[in-house]
């Protein structure tokens, strides 16, 4: 039976670990709420830009922007993988990587080459071991990603698409279902999936300044950037939620560990007392 002193020290160390995990849980909870707010704030922009694209599309059906044309032969696929920068958030990143690997294998099975674009240091740490070419990467977005930090990364992929180096662009990120569950989601960014004409308001023709092609180009680029931004923000919300849950279970486990250790400690203490008593009684009997 281990000594009481060692057990006490062990209890102390588990208690301080529990303090840390509890603090992390609470921090993650408040950050999650803010990340969710940011997620909501990004929605009106994306909705608005979608309707504008819809209008533009309906207004001049003869002009087909390269971003809207489905390419018959997909030889190269670009995949943007969004992950978190830090760990201690359960299986969140691993789930995203798993579905990325599945998507990669799927396209490679169809004879297409895959190029990656990685957001977040966990993704870079994971995918650098594979032999897949990595076109661009960005790390350290922090808890408040900004569109500005994503423009370069997205542009690399858009340029590759324009030049025909990739024929399809996918975005894989965690999607926030609720605090308890996050699921990896695969979104097709390019070609832009044709928008439903039914959710447009009554149709009229616009005056275009300078011309519709230039506007469509600018608007489509922003649309894709906003989708990647949304993915990044949603990923932060997921990260925080996952961390909150992971830290909560860590705190709970620490609690039950402490209870167990306490029991062992009490037993050891009692055994020591009993032994001492027995010695005294034994000694008295000898006299």
């Amino acid at each position: 039976m281990p000594g009481t002193k060692e057990i006490r020290a062990k209890i102390g160390s588990v208690k301080s670990t529990q303090k840390i995990t509890k603090a992390m849980e609470m921090v993650a909870a408040s950050k999650m709420r803010r990340a969710q707010d940011r997620m909501r704030l990004a929605r009106p922009y994306a909705d608005k830009i979608r309707t504008v694209i819809g209008h533009l599309n309906a207004a001049n059906p003869d002009y087909r922007h390269p971003f809207l044309v489905e390419r018959a032969d997909v030889k190269n696929v670009g995949i943007i993988v969004v992950s978190s920068d830090r760990g201690l958030c359960g299986a969140l990143n691993i789930n995203v990587f798993k579905s990325s690997l599945l998507a990669m294998r799927d396209w490679q099975g169809k004879g297409a080459a895959v190029q990656l674009c990685l957001i977040g240091s966990k993704a870079t740490a994971f995918f650098r071991r594979l032999k897949t070419p990595i076109a661009a990467s960005v790390q350290g977005l922090g808890d408040k990603p900004h569109v500005k930090d994503l423009i370069g990364t997205v542009k690399v992929m858009l340029d590759a698409y324009r030049e025909g180096k990739i024929d399809r662009l996918l975005l894989i990120h965690s999607s926030f279902i609720n605090t308890m569950s996050q699921r990896p989601e695969v979104v097709q960014l390019l070609p832009v999936e044709t928008l439903d004409a039914s959710d447009l308001q009554q149709h009229w023709d616009y005056i275009y300044e300078p011309d519709s092609a230039a506007i469509l180009d600018g608007v489509l680029m922003r649309y894709i950037e906003s989708q990647v931004y949304r993915g990044a923000v949603e990923n932060v919300a997921c990260e925080m939620a996952a961390r909150m849950v992971a830290m909560k279970s860590a705190s709970d486990n620490a609690g039950s560990l402490i209870d167990e250790l306490q029991l062992v400690y009490n037993k050891a203490r009692q055994a020591a007392i009993t032994k001492e008593l027995a010695e005294i009684v034994g000694g008295a009997a000898a006299v």
């Binding site: 661009a136 960005v138 370069g152 690399v156």
Partner: peptide, 24 residues
């Protein structure tokens, strides 16, 4: 008004793209 949060110009975007490639 669909506003950009970042100041953008062609060469600024280009530089950002280059930086992203370099990081990779």
């Amino acid at each position: 008004v669909l506003a950009d949060t970042a100041l953008r110009a062609k060469d600024v975007d280009e530089a950002a793209a280059l930086a992203a490639k370099q990081r990779a």
